[in-house]
Design a protein around this nucleic acid. Structure first.
Lengths: 109, 109
DNA sequence: CATCTTTATCGTAATATTGCAATATTAAAT
DNA sequence: ATTTAATATTGCAATATTACGATAAAGATG
């Protein structure tokens, strides 16, 4: 085996898992945090920031993009990446929702 | 290779990535949502809820536990699992923080 | 004590991820 | 048109993940 049984879960569960999975690597967390920090959407600077080769960074960027966490804008021969706020909001709401539901109940363990 | 270069990133980045990685599978999202729903910390019922074999569920539970997302309490011969609110709060704060920082700046792409 | 119940662990096959060198692509600059 | 710069893609090796059958461990129950 090795393949996730995605067909057995809801679309929302699969979407949430895909987003979380994309964040589930320290390099990609670092990329997101860097993009938050520099505001202006730097592109290849990420390669200089991280201790990873250019193809590796490119691969991580693609995964973040596929998950909807970042957007890429072509600007000349460079590409301007930045965070997609909508997906961050989705995460915010998701965990707010869980936290809210937990508050209403008494923790058991 | 195949191994993540965790040593090149900050402890916080690695921690965040580890938590996100644990959520990064639809079965584990489903487990978390089920635990939120049933409040009382059901244990083996998860196996009945999910279309996965018992050893697979056990493995997923261990990963959620290692990431600090759930706690397990031994109760007789059964084990009572429930969500660890502290880690949910951590996630909440993390994404609130990012969203907050994004608001102060004008989006570029 | 024998047995049932519940959960964990081991072993293993299938698949996915990570990382990078080499190479391709695309657009600007000369 | 050539060269340069910035990204992406390909191919591949090392490692990790996913899933499950078989089995073990530990407490409950008869």
């Amino acid at each position: 085996m090795g393949a996730s049984k995605t067909e057995h879960f809801t679309a929302k569960q699969n979407e949430m898992a895909a987003i979380a999975k994309a964040i589930g690597h320290p390099a990609r967390v670092a990329i997101l945090e860097y993009l938050v920090k520099v505001n202006a959407c730097i592109c290849g600077d990420i390669v200089n920031e991280l201790p990873l080769a250019q193809p590796t960074v490119s691969q991580h960027l693609r995964e973040l993009k596929n998950a909807g966490l970042i957007k890429g804008n072509i600007e000349g021969n460079a590409i301007c990446y930045c965070i997609d706020e909508k997906t961050i909001e989705k995460l915010q709401k998701y965990f707010d929702g869980i936290a809210g539901k937990l508050l209403k109940k008494n923790s058991c363990c």
